[in-house]
Amino acid sequence: MSDTIRISTEDRPGRITILRVEGRLDARAADLLEQRAKDVAAEGRNLIVNMKGVTFIGSSGVGLMLTLTEEFREQAGSVRFVELSPPVRAVVELLQMMDLIGVDASEDAGLKMLEAA
């Protein structure tokens, strides 16, 4: 059962960090991811969150996606959410949030968007 969350980090050149999230992104896991993302923001790096392995997302996870978008924007940075898994996509679409957050099909597409910005 995927009752734990796993987050792996990869730093890329161009001041970009990729966080790969796997497992259930519920209320407790959202706090964990938020801390990791804020560390990235504190270093002044841009962020890519790969959500390919997310098996469940609750309102706190979705709320985090909006919070991160807002916070990176305030610091003149940017966050891209890539490879949304079907559960994530279903919930994001249910809330009609596609226009509010930056979504890309792949890490490469996310990197391109960040480089172009």
Binding site: G58, S59, G63, L66, L95
Partner: peptide, 9 residues
């Protein structure tokens, strides 16, 4: 605030 739309969901 981020949270607070569980019910909306």
């Amino acid at each position: 605030r981020g949270r607070g739309f569980g019910l909306a969901l």
